[in-house]
Amino acid sequence: MAKATTIIHKMEKDPKELHEQQVKEIESLLVEHKDSIEDVLTIIHQLRDREVLNLAHGALGQSEHVVHRIVTAMDTKETTQSIKNALLIFELLGTVNMNELEPIVLKLNHGIKMAAEYDHSDQNAGTLGLIRSLNDKEVIEGMNVLMKFVKGFGVDEAQEEKIEPQLERFEHPEKEMGTQKRESTSNTKPTRVYAPRLFGFITGALVLLVPLLIKKK
């Protein structure tokens, strides 16, 4: 006659026996992974020497506070602007063609060198000297390079820009209108597309005007 019962005596495992069993399990794990464990211990030793472990201990122990503090500190315009700029510079670097840039940089260096060597007390350099220098082969070459640069400057690259994040646009919704062109392949003509061209045109005109201004004097 087995009467219904709900009494269950749990198996009390001898703590000593349990401990021994667990030690044995760990021991066999150690043996099995001996080489890896030696490597790991070396790294841990070095981390300890350099206080990294203590740092990590503190950071992990207070991780929620630490993360919150860092995140709220980062959530400022200056910090996010820095990160954004860093990311943009990184992306911009990818757009630079170093082969094409190299001769320009060399020319720039040369120009800088000559500028540095220029002696302000040199009386030979006057307005006429400048006009004369328009016949100089090197000056003509420099002007041509500058003209190409100015032309390239006037090309519309709005499609390629990546510098207006979502939050910024949200805070300045008026700018949203200006970004319409960027997202669609529409043939509509938002006004802003002319802005870079206009800027290029003005810059180019100014460069051309330089000799004329000098001439007037």
Partner: peptide
């Protein structure tokens, strides 16, 4: 917010 601010 940070993610939105810095995304390019």
């Amino acid at each position: 917010n940070i993610t939105k601010s810095v995304e390019t």
